[in-house]
Design a protein around this nucleic acid. Structure first.
Lengths: 209, 209
DNA sequence: TCGTGTGAAGACGTTCACAGCT
DNA sequence: AGCTGTGAACGTCTTCACACGA
């Protein structure tokens, strides 16, 4: 499949298919139709087939897709390699919770270090991630060759930290701060704005009478 | 503006504009051009003007938009009403952190109650939200007329809880569980999948040589 | 001249519908 | 009969480009 022209949305869906397929595998189901998998993933069946189209002929007409093969094909495409190191900046409420969150580990990521203005405050919060002062940030990134950073600092400090990350040549930022970051094009930013999500949801719910 | 045909994406952007505008107001800036605001919000200037088009003639050619008026117009459109009650299900790591998260309060929401299989385990975690056993869920929703729920239970229990919420006629679910929920059309679901976000980010970062 | 408002064009994503294989 | 693979239609979102007002 052509890796350069694929959209972010397709990647999201492929990741979701992976999850659904793994559940099927656990239940020892060997083949699945596009319509069944699409329903589980919450998408249209034609779209699922389109997403899978680039992988070549891997479904059987009249039957469906072989679950295990499909998992492997997608994993290979996504390049799910070895354990990937991640750092986290801002060891407050949310940051500490994310350090304990095991969903990242399942996905092949490990939080190898955290950074905070007041590192001491974060100890004893039930995680085993070392917390360093902010001064060490740049050196750490460069020495450990870290590509991804999770940003959980208050909105008013987010841009400042992002600048530091940019100088240290980070590859991507998962930004939980309620701030639109201005970064060079070489850095990919994924925004997860919790308040915004709730407000957006609220808009569509309150519309009803 | 026509409230029925507006897309979720536009709402997200309007909420972001709000934030940027408020910062401008704090700095006592009275007018802003579409290009300046668009840059701050990370969008195209033409798109911003399109988003605002439905509100009627509120910009001045050659000058820009009056900051304060624009804030009020958008707020009125979004119907940012009184404090809105929200419940949270799953008082684990993430759930507890969200209870302490003050971004929700800033957005006009209040977590009025939390629910967990083991309510005792959540006390003393630095929040002041009452935690109830799951049995009380339905009654609570109906008696307090709660419209929004934040779902933070492990993936394997998410669908089960969603079913309960559906029966209790919840309006919307902010779903942090790594599960695709199957719910009736009357319920709006907003998925925030932390692991997925990081995996997606990772894909686009690892592409580079 | 600067910046809004907007028609038109373009890019993108989704869904339909059906030929063709098992 | 059931299901994949896919061209074509459709719909949505984004960007361009420019007329017009301040």
């Amino acid at each position: 499949m052509d890796k350069s022209t694929i959209s972010s949305k397709s990647i999201y869906r492929l990741l979701i298919y992976q999850r659904c397929l793994r559940k099927l595998l656990e239940n020892e189901i060997e083949t699945v139709s596009s319509s069944a998998l699409a329903k589980a993933a919450g998408v249209n069946a034609a779209q699922l087939r389109k997403d899978l189209a680039g992988f070549g002929q891997l479904g059987t007409r009249g039957l469906g897709y072989p679950v295990e093969d499909l998992i492997n094909t997608i994993r290979e495409f996504l390049g799910k390699s070895a354990l990937q190191p991640v750092i986290l900046i801002g060891a407050g409420n949310l940051g500490s919770a994310l350090m304990r969150y095991n969903g990242f580990q399942k996905g092949g990521f490990q939080v190898v270090g955290a950074f905070d203005l007041f590192p001491q405050a974060s100890y004893g919060k039930g995680h085993d991630v070392p917390v360093f002062p902010m001064d060490n940030l740049t050196t750490f990134i460069q020495q450990k060759n870290v590509k991804l950073a999770i940003l959980c600092v208050p909105g008013e400090h987010a841009q400042e930290v992002a600048n530091t990350l940019a100088l240290a040549k980070i590859g991507g930022i998962l930004n939980f701060s309620p701030t639109v970051l201005q970064v060079p094009d070489s850095i990919t930013v994924n925004n997860v704005d919790l308040a915004l999500e709730l407000e957006n949801l609220s808009y569509f719910v309150t519309q009803e009478p």
